[in-house]
Amino acid sequence: MIRSELIQKLSEENPHLFQRDVERIVNTIFDEIIEAMAKGDRVELRGFGAFSVKKRDARAGRNPRTGESVAVDQKHVPFFKTGKLLRDRLNGG
């Protein structure tokens, strides 16, 4: 399923809404999650999962092609943990 298919399903279920409003709604939801994580906040969607930010320490990396050692700075990366309900549903629960 891709973004446009999601928008289409929602439009079919909500015939009273303009498609461009449905697009806006879907974009708002995903943008809001990214914005929250950019601020270092968590987004917890019970039953679905939780988005959070994890810190990766600085480390000495290596260029796999040349074997040359390079310094990798500390950074923050997005992380998603599947919610219990969805995890159970994936396994026939």
Binding site: E32, I33, A36, D41, R42, V43, L45, R46
Partner: peptide
Amino acid sequence: MGEKTLTRMDLS
């Protein structure tokens, strides 16, 4: 860095 937790309510 924030430490807030957003929920469905915030998205709505």
